[in-house]
Design a protein around this nucleic acid. Structure first.
Length: 487
RNA sequence: GCCGCGUUCGUCUAGGGGUUUAGGACGCCGGCCUUUCACGCCGGUAACACGGGUUCGAAUCCCGUACGCGGCACCA
């Protein structure tokens, strides 16, 4: 275990609801921080005013809180490196851009977005703003100083681009993939400062990670191709780059990038919010996500968040894209539901339950905990605990309701009605006695009784169920069934 | 098109030169338990992308091919 002060950050962009892949990125960051008694920072990368969604930031906070991923520094909690909104750090970036400009590592460019788009459209393969093309473009490297100053003074919009020198190879080590190399001539002169005065991700990300003392940048694999730009930037500033770890992408069941479309197509929700709404337990989603791309090297599958912290390491994160399997998530949900103690389980079910006596819900839960995949199933699959059946399963009736059922059920109801005490044991005793009396198998009574009480042919142990339902309710439902189904 | 990353059962994965008749989990199939249905337990199904090397020996190392994914914005 390392004793170096680990500082990691999760830096989502508030452009939409928190993505499931984003939650996994946050989780891995969180795990590394907690594992090494480090610091987990939340930073909001809101430099894109065009795509800003006000609701998004709240969703990020809500989702992280729901998942149990607490952060040590960030919006709301503050910290030494505040502010944690990039939009509030504009002046900071300005200074660093100037530093780059002064050192000749960056330059002004006046090309309009439209002009660049046209170049891209006209290019045979792909247009790149780089050492080979910049001389013919509208920037401070092709213009005289006076002209540049004049145009800026005139209020002409401009951007600042990083000047990437060619004929070098940018190498860096990725914690997950090992050594990665890119030829500088393939890297373009990335815009660092947009014409609206906002930094781009690349600049802001490097400056902030350095200023915030980030030691490990853990992010999705989609960032791998732009990492050489970041490495170059650290170099220009004379800063030591943090360790990089690029996580394999989460794929949809067809093997493509998980997108909104997958919600309708494969039933795979993309937003964390959707998982919350569908009733997944946070422990299950976290456990599932942790194992999606990482494995502990043991055969343990079920983990609490604390256990994940204990077991986690970057070295055991995989390298290839992983497909999302809803069946397995569902299995984790069942497993985590069963791990709960009864009171804990009741807490999860309570929000779905009709108002009523809490002791009763607890009794129902005790019978249902091992039988459901989702907490709400207790209510949806065993509604008969809360309301008498209004109909009887047709196929069940056909199979289980015999000629003598009405008569037997009537007799059983009468017998139970007279009982001085009522619990599972007496219910069973009286049923077996009655069966003996009429010289029929117990099943002849058990099945029609279940049908009468629940309307369906499946469910928890009949006698346990009867005890929970209570004497009066059982007798009444049985008599009603005799009337309804007759003979 | 260019650049990068990847490739073990359908899916998540273990394994990192001989311990492998390639292990576990989900799913699926079968059985046991239960006069219900589940849970649980037991068993089964199913994989090293391909081709060359290196080596006494390769799923494991190297090269190539194929395929997949990602990136190539004044988006992150």
């Amino acid at each position: 275990m390392s004793s170096s002060p680990v500082r990691v950050r999760f830096a989502p962009s508030p452009t939409g609801m928190l993505h499931i892949g984003g939650l996994r990125t946050a989780l891995y960051n969180y795990l590394l921080a907690r594992k090494h008694d480090g610091v987990f920072v939340l930073r909001i990368e809101d430099t894109d005013r065009e795509r800003y969604v006000a609701e998004a930031e709240k969703d990020i906070a809500t989702s992280l809180a729901w998942a149990g991923l607490s952060f040590d520094e960030g919006p709301g909690v503050g910290g030494e490196a505040a502010p944690y909104y990039q939009s509030e750090r504009k002046d900071i970036y300005k200074g660093y851009v100037q530093q780059l400009l002064d050192a000749g590592h960056a330059y002004y460019a006046f090309d309009t977005p439209e002009a660049l788009q046209q170049l891209r459209d006209e290019a045979e393969h792909a247009f790149s703003y780089n050492a080979a093309t910049r001389g013919a473009l509208d920037n401070s490297l092709s213009l005289t100083d006076e002209e540049v100053q004049q145009r800026i003074a005139n209020g002409e919009p401009y951007v600042v681009r990083m000047k990437v020198d060619h004929d070098i190879t940018v190498r860096f080590s990725d914690e997950i993939r090992g050594s990665v190399a890119f030829e500088a001539e393939k890297i373009d002169d990335q815009v660092l400062l947009k014409s609206d005065g906002m930094p781009t991700y690349h600049l802001a990300n490097v400056v902030d990670d350095h200023l915030m003392g980030i030691t490990h940048v853990i992010r999705g694999e989609e960032w791998l191709p732009s990492t050489p730009k970041h490495v170059l930037l650290y170099d220009y500033f004379g800063w030591e780059a943090p360790a990089f770890a690029h996580l394999p992408l989460i794929l949809n069941p067809e093997g493509g990038k998980l997108s909104k479309r997958d919600v309708e197509r494969g039933g795979i929700p993309v937003s964390v919010r959707d998982y919350i709404e569908r009733g997944y337990e946070p422990e299950a989603l976290i456990n599932f996500l942790a194992l999606l791309g990482w494995n502990p090297g043991t055969e343990q599958e079920l983990f609490s968040l604390e256990e994940l912290v204990e077991a986690f390491s970057l070295e055991r994160v995989g390298t290839s894209g992983v497909q999302f399997d809803l069946d397995k998530l569902n299995w984790f949900n069942e497993q985590h539901l069963r791990r709960l103690d009864l009171d804990g389980f009741v807490e999860r079910v309570a929000p779905y339950a009709p108002k009523g006596e809490s002791g009763y819900l607890r009794d129902v839960c005790a019978l249902m905990q091992d039988r459901v995949s989702f907490a709400r199933d207790v209510i949806s699959e065993a509604g008969y605990f809360f309301e008498a059946p209004t109909s009887y399963d047709e196929k069940g009736v056909k199979k289980r309701w015999k000629d003598d059922s009405a008569m037997l059920l009537q007799a059983y109801a009468d017998s139970l009605d007279e009982a001085a005490t009522f619990d599972a044991e007496t219910a069973e005793q009286r049923l077996r006695d009655l069966a003996d009396e009429h010289d029929v198998g117990a099943g002849r009574l058990i099945h029609p009784t279940r049908l009468a009480l629940s309307g369906v042919t499946f469910g928890p142990s009949l006698f346990a169920m009867m005890e929970v339902l209570g004497q009066r309710e059982c007798v009444s439902r049985m008599r009603k069934a005799v009337q309804e189904l007759g003979d």
